[in-house]
Design a protein around this nucleic acid. Structure first.
Lengths: 225, 225
DNA sequence: GTCTATAGACGGATAGAC
DNA sequence: GTCTATCCGTCTATAGAC
């Protein structure tokens, strides 16, 4: 009798989220108006405020819809690694893969909008808007903590500051790689058009691991080529 | 008699450029109004249109003021390498250093605003605004051409697509490293506070070269740690 | 070159009918 | 839940006095 879902209005809500996601990638948050969003979503202008309360709240909803799941998959992958290792130190390459592999997997999904979202996320790492940056940092806090801790334990002989910097560099490389997927990168305009993300993951992984394993800045043993 | 410079008005113009540069970093292009700029520069609201013509033209002027010189230093450094090599192939590490070393050097200059500008530039690699992206791509066209060509010749055994991707990754790593200099990176909130750029260059260089030299994705010879 | 005043478009948000 | 109509603030740009 009370088996009907309480409010089956979710259609408009989702159309707004989809439209906002896509437009935020193309024009940025400040460059996307609510009129643009509701227009693209075939919804009324007032619908955004009805369903989300404000534009800022809509931005949060766009991220939460997919970022929470992504970060939970990352944490689950790390949990599995640690369980399997049974106390032994983890291989750094597995840690890196748990973090970046899950991201690139989502970026490979062009059907359900995963790629669109990942391009938005990649771009947002450098977002000026303070509100958005703060929100992102909170969403990432636990994941960063867990993965950095795992890397510290996996590489006990490497100074922690170096690991922090290198993880930082790695995120930058990934963000640029993903942001360029949709054809955004005019800088290197002849990037191969075979932007098959199935090929991107091994490419990025070997680059990242090469960087992670590189001789430390002080070391005099670096090859000279 | 006619020794007086034609129009010694440059004071206001420069104050506007300085203020715009700083505010663009903090709030983005769309998030910075001309009222904010002229307010911070102690200039009249109409001064921007008088001196530059429009907000878009001001954005171009902010970039041109420093980017042209940076890219000319990069090209000059590459010229020197090629002259010294006298036909011999260049070391990839020297090519990478000519490109990224000049960038980090400018980022180290906190006195003349070089760091502020480099943070703006780093963030702008991912700028949504089509006008700005197009402009940046044109400013970079020659430099990209020359450096990619040099890398192709220095690494003839590496497929060009791999070099393109890896250079792409390297730019992403650099952009993130520089954007984080001013304290922007809440993501890894405990980044060491000794953000002395003199230390950043060797750190970034060893990471980048490690990535550039990493085994190619197909190779089965990668170590398994 | 600098200023005031204002035009004219567009922004987010909301009240209230349906 | 959806819609229209509208408030009110801010935006870029410009006209015209000084």
């Amino acid at each position: 009798m009370a088996a009907t879902p309480p409010a089956p209005n979710t259609d408009t809500r989702d159309r707004i989220l989809d439209a906002a996601e896509r437009l935020f990638v193309e024009h940025g948050f400040d460059g996307t108006s609510m009129r643009m969003i509701t227009g693209a979503a075939n919804a009324n202008l007032a619908a955004v405020n009805y369903h989300f309360g404000s534009k800022d709240a809509l931005v949060q909803a766009v991220f939460r819809r997919r970022l929470t799941a992504l970060n939970q998959r990352r944490l689950a992958a790390l949990d599995r690694l640690e369980t399997d290792a049974a106390g032994e130190p983890l291989k750094p390459s597995r840690i890196v893969e748990a973090f970046f592999g899950n991201a690139l997997e989502l970026a490979a999904d062009t059907e359900q909008g995963g790629r669109t979202f990942m391009r938005l996320l990649a771009r947002t790492y450098n977002e000026p808007n303070a509100f958005v940056r703060q929100f992102l940092a909170e969403e990432y806090a636990e994941v960063m903590d867990r993965f950095l801790g795992a890397l510290f334990r996996a590489l006990p002989e490497v100074p922690r500051a170096e690991i922090l910097w290198r993880f930082h560099f790695m995120i930058g490389a990934m963000a640029f790689a993903i942001a360029g997927l949709g054809g955004l990168s005019e800088l290197i305009d002849d990037l191969p058009k075979d932007d098959d993300p199935a090929r991107l993951l091994p490419r990025l992984m070997s680059f990242l691991l090469g960087g992670l394993r590189a001789p430390l800045p002080g070391a005099a043993t670096a090859p000279t080529n």
